[in-house]
């Protein structure tokens, strides 16, 4: 395994433009998807935890089940939506980073919703009386609980990030793996593997893993620090 590691190191050390561009796009797509999934998923998950309405049980089951949605299927759904022959065709978004963000958002959203619901439900059990006493109704409790559950919620967000940064099926279909435009770490790895450049593929994998490790270490550190500080 000396080869791939040496290749990986040389790649990073060279500061190769194409590589930096690929890393940048990967981060942009994945973080973009995580951010959108949070903006939608956090309030929705909290609402599922607090609100009682017909169909709530079904929604919980569906969002739990969708955590296992195969990336290729998410990719196909977005592909059919964005294709020129699809309903959103006129937006001309297929084979763009935006399309990739959309597909990954679809992948992560169920994770964020389900984990948020479970965190907020637990917190609500603890906070319910106190918040009602202070004068916060269920609706007003949503941002309070999200903020007070921020350390636990970070875990859910990280799980989403992990899924997005690792997947290749969805971004390959909707992004098209266009060099310099929609090529990410994972699609580049796929391409190099299919070219038989296993060394380069593994080197890219090492770079990806290093990035993921760094981000997770950062998030874990922040979590530990917050736990210590916030009790």
């Amino acid at each position: 395994m000396d080869g791939p590691f040496a290749t990986a190191f040389t790649l990073i050390a060279s500061g190769d433009d194409a590589l930096l561009q690929i890393i940048g796009l990967s981060l942009r797509v994945t973080l973009g998807a995580v951010a959108i999934a949070c903006v939608i998923g956090l309030p929705l998950g909290a609402a599922l935890a607090l609100a009682r309405f017909p169909g709530r049980g079904a929604m919980i089951v569906v969002s739990n089940a969708l955590m296992g949605l195969p990336p290729v299927v998410a990719g196909l759904v977005v592909y059919l939506l964005l294709s020129r022959s699809g309903p959103l065709g006129p937006l001309a978004l297929l084979f763009t980073p935006t399309a990739m963000i959309m597909a990954q958002t679809l992948l992560i959203l169920p994770i964020v919703i389900s984990l948020t619901r479970s965190v907020v439900e637990d917190l609500w059990a603890e906070y319910r009386e106190q918040l009602l006493s202070l004068g916060a109704g269920r609706l007003r409790a949503v941002p309070t609980l999200l903020w007070d559950g921020r350390v636990s919620l970070l875990t859910g967000v990280l799980a989403g990030f992990g899924r997005a940064s690792a997947e290749v099926g969805a971004v390959l279909i909707v992004g098209g793996n266009i060099a310099g435009h929609t090529r990410t770490m994972t699609t580049a790895i796929t391409l190099e593997t299919s070219r038989g450049n296993l060394g380069l593929a593994v080197a890219l994998g090492i770079v990806l893993l290093t990035l993921t490790l760094t981000l997770n270490a950062l998030a874990w550190g922040v979590g530990q620090w917050a736990r210590g500080r916030l009790g």
Partner: peptide
């Protein structure tokens, strides 16, 4: 978060 988001998505091709 919302503004960061806008930036990420809207980065014009």
């Amino acid at each position: 978060a919302a503004s960061a988001l806008g930036l990420l998505v809207a980065l014009p091709a």
